[in-house]
C-alpha cells in the first residue's frame, strides 16, 4: 500500500520547497502598538520591491527584544514602544548583535469616553489618583482608597471609578506607568477599578460604548480609527491631535522605535529598504498612509536625519 516512492516524494514535499525557495522574508517582532503600522509598511514594501512580504509578529516589546538579542538570530528587527534598557543592551552585546536605533514616530495614549456623555478635563495627577495602586494621601503612601470621581476632585461628578486599559507585559502599560509616576512608586491597582484588557483595544472601545461611566485608555491610532464613536478627554488641558502630540504639548505621548540588526548587513540590505519605506514620505508624510492610520510622524528635520543615516548605512553595508 505504501510504496517507497510515495514516502520519498513526501519527504521532498516536506523539505524540498525550503531549498527551492528564494530569500526568506524579513522578520520583525515586538510592540503590538507598532504592529499594525509595520504590517502596512510590509505590504507596501512587498508591492514596491517585489520582495516577499515581511513577517511581523506582535509579541510585545519585552518579548520582541528578548528574541532580538538571542543567539538564534532569526529577527531582522525589533519594534519597541520604549527604548532598550541597560540590561537588554548588555544582553545584545553578549550575543554580539549590533543594532541601530531608529525613532519612527510617536504614539499617544488617549483617554476615551462614549460620545455624547459629559466628562471633564483631567490632569495627570487625577489620573494617577484614579488608577495607581498606592497613592499619596495625608502624608503617606496608602492603598488607593478612591472609588468615586468626586473623591479625587470635588468638582468631578459623583460617578463610580471604572477604567479599562493596557495589561502588564505590554509596552503601553510600561509607558502609562512612567507617565503617572508619582511620589509612591507603584503599579496600577488591581482591585477591580482598573481593568486590564490585554492587547485588545477593540474590547476596551466596546466596553466604553456599552457599560455606563467607563473610561478607556487606548493608543492614538485606535482612537483615530474610531473617532466617530468615542470622544477623547483632555489631559492637562490638551486634547490629543497629531500636532499636540508631535510638539509635546499633549502629555501622554511616547516615541516609537525600530531597532535594525546590523550584522551581515550586506547580505540583508532588505532591512534598509524596509526602513526606508517606513520613513518615506509615502508613509509618514503629511497624507502618508501611516499618518492616516494614526501614527504621529516625526518632525521634518528628524525625518531628514533618518534618511541620511539610512543612506550612510547603504553605502557602508553595500560595500563590505
Amino acid at each position: 500500500m505504501f510504496k517507497k516512492e510515495w514516502g520519498f516524494l513526501f519527504f521532498i514535499f516536506l523539505f524540498g520547497f525550503q531549498i527551492a525557495e528564494a530569500a526568506p522574508p524579513l522578520r520583525l517582532a515586538g510592540s503590538s502598538a507598532i504592529f499594525p503600522f509595520a504590517a502596512r509598511v510590509a505590504e507596501y514594501f512587498h508591492y514596491k520591491t517585489q520582495e516577499p512580504t515581511p513577517l511581523i509578529e506582535g509579541l510585545g516589546t519585552g518579548a520582541g527584544i528578548k528574541l532580538f538579542c538571542e543567539g538564534t538570530r532569526e529577527l531582522d528587527g525589533v519594534m519597541a514602544s520604549r527604548p532598550f534598557t541597560e540590561t537588554e543592551r548588555k544582553k545584545c552585546e553578549q550575543q554580539n548583535i549590533d543594532f541601530q536605533e531608529f525613532k519612527i514616530g510617536q504614539d499617544g495614549l488617549v483617554l476615551i469616553e462614549k460620545k455624547g456623555s459629559q466628562f471633564f478635563p483631567i490632569r495627570i495627577e487625577d489620573l494617577r489618583s484614579a488608577i495607581a495602586e498606592k497613592v499619596f494621601v495625608k502624608g503617606q503612601c496608602l492603598k488607593n482608597p478612591y472609588m468615586i470621581w468626586s473623591q479625587i476632585q470635588p468638582s468631578f461628578p459623583v460617578l463610580p471609578l471604572r477604567i479599562l486599559g493596557p495589561a502588564p507585559a505590554s509596552g503601553t502599560y510600561d509607558v502609562l506607568l512612567e507617565k503617572i509616576k508619582g511620589p509612591c512608586d507603584s503599579l496600577l491597582r488591581h482591585d477591580g477599578i482598573y481593568i486590564e484588557a490585554p492587547a485588545n483595544e477593540n474590547l476596551i472601545i466596546q466596553k466604553v460604548l456599552t457599560a455606563p461611566h467607563t473610561i478607556g485608555i487606548i493608543t492614538f491610532s485606535f482612537y483615530e480609527q474610531n473617532k466617530n464613536r468615542i470622544r477623547a478627554l483632555s489631559v492637562n488641558g490638551v486634547l490629543p491631535f497629531l500636532k499636540t502630540i508631535q510638539d509635546g504639548h499633549y502629555p501622554l505621548s511616547r516615541p516609537l522605535y525600530i531597532y535594525i540588526k546590523l550584522n551581515d548587513l550586506s547580505d540583508h540590505l532588505n532591512r534598509l529598504l524596509y526602513m526606508r519605506e517606513f520613513t518615506s514620505n509615502d508613509a509618514i508624510g503629511k497624507s502618508g498612509y501611516l499618518t492616516e492610520k494614526g501614527l504621529i510622524p516625526l518632525p521634518q528635520s528628524e525625518q531628514r536625519n533618518i534618511q541620511k543615516d539610512l543612506a550612510q548605512l547603504f553605502k557602508t553595508g553595500g560595500s563590505s
Binding site: 514535499f13 516536506l14 523539505f15 524540498g16 520547497f17 525550503q18 525557495e21 522574508p25 517582532a29 504592529f35 509595520a38 504590517a39 510590509a42 505590504e43 512587498h46 516577499p52 512580504t53 513577517l55 511581523i56 509578529e57 506582535g58 509579541l59
Partner: peptide
C-alpha cells in the same frame, strides 16, 4: 508557539511560517 503574526504569504512547505 508564536503563530500570532502577520503572515501575508501562504506557506509552501511544512517549515514555512
Amino acid at each position: 508557539i508564536g503563530m500570532v503574526a502577520f503572515i501575508a504569504t501562504p506557506p509552501s512547505s511544512f517549515l514555512d511560517p
